[in-house]
Computed example of a mutant assay.
Amino acid sequence: MTERTQAPYARIAAELRGRIERGELRPGDRVPSTRAITQRWGVAMATASKVLATLGQEGLVRAVPGVGTLVAARPAASQGRRPATAEDDGAQRGRIVRAAAAIADAEGLTALTMRRLAAELGVSAMSLYRHVSTKEQLVVLMADAAFGEQALPERPPAHWRDRLELSAALQWRLYRTHPWLAGAMNLSRPLLIPNGIRHIDWALAALDGLGLDDDTRMHAAVTLFGYVRGHAVDLEPESDAARTSGVTGQDWMRAQETRLAALADGGAFPAFAGARAASALTPESLLQYGLTALLDGIAIRITTPPN
């Protein structure tokens, strides 16, 4: 019988059975309740009850009064399967991190809770703590995974300036992709994540051999990292504002044009009024202007010109 011709209860039971057998739902995890099944799959309560009854008859789940329906301690379908390994745990942690990042990307970091994440994955909130000890640790893993998405090339550009510009561009792209990421970083109490430190190491290597001492090189590398991150901090609030209001930042600025013109033309701010007419500010133009000024400042400190 194909999936299309299966009875709805059988199709849903097969999907949940597969998740249990693959280890996505482990012993002690909560399976979707009858109400959750009706909402997720759009079936009647009687059908949802039959789903859980079928899984119970197979020995895959058990009902616990006051708690819900849990994956059985020794599911019949798992007899003879190899025990979970560190590789399995890593795969589960990766799945959790990806799901958490998807929530944060779509709705912001404040929307991410362990309960919300568990619901998204169809597991109990407590089961998540087998793989991540706290939400704070989860955010660290998310940040490391995000920085790992943009690999720095094995063969970097030859010139130090091109190399630092490429690093800054990759970081900006990451912050654009994950608006929550900049707010999760902190230079006072930095996240010690390998993929983030890789950008620092890249910048230090780019500045090697230019007559700069180690302290100057470290300050330059961390300042570059902090500059891009600081410029990106506004991305999540802007994303939240656009999502909740339906008005983009550009639309908002256009709506303020009359008020802005009144301020500029009133005579109280003559320098501002004069420069305003010739300026077209965007997040990217501001980023590039500051980056150019930062790299120019590093350039004048170089005592050994690159080959």
Rank of each mutant, 00 (worst) to 15 (best):
T2A: 14
T2Y: 10
Q6K: 15
Q6W: 15
A7S: 15
A7V: 14
I12M: 02
A14S: 13
E15A: 05
L16Q: 01
L25S: 00
G28D: 07
Q39V: 08
R40W: 04
G42I: 13
T47G: 01
S49V: 13
K50F: 03
K50I: 07
G56N: 12
L60E: 05
A63F: 09
V64D: 05
P65W: 06
L70R: 04
L70P: 01
V71N: 02
V71W: 00
V71M: 04
A72R: 07
A84R: 14
A86S: 13
A86F: 09
A91W: 08
A91D: 09
G94C: 07
V97G: 01
A99P: 05
A104C: 07
A104I: 10
T110E: 14
E120F: 02
V123Y: 00
M126V: 12
S127W: 00
Y129E: 11
Y129F: 10
Q137Y: 06
V139R: 05
L141Y: 00
A143N: 07
A145Y: 02
F147R: 04
F147L: 09
L152M: 14
L174C: 08
H178R: 14
H178L: 07
G183Y: 05
L187C: 10
S188Q: 15
R189P: 03
R189S: 12
R189E: 14
L192K: 13
P194C: 11
N195Q: 15
I197H: 08
R198K: 15
L207W: 00
G211E: 09
G211S: 10
G211P: 10
D214Y: 02
D215W: 03
A220Q: 01
A220Y: 00
A220M: 04
A221Y: 00
A221T: 06
G230D: 13
H231S: 08
A232E: 06
S239C: 11
T244F: 10
G246I: 15
V247S: 13
W252D: 07
M253E: 14
R254P: 02
R254T: 11
R254A: 08
T258F: 03
A262K: 10
L263P: 03
L263M: 11
D265F: 07
G267W: 13
P270L: 12
A275T: 13
S279V: 06
L281V: 12
L286Q: 08
T292Q: 07
A293H: 12
A293V: 11
D296A: 06
G297H: 05
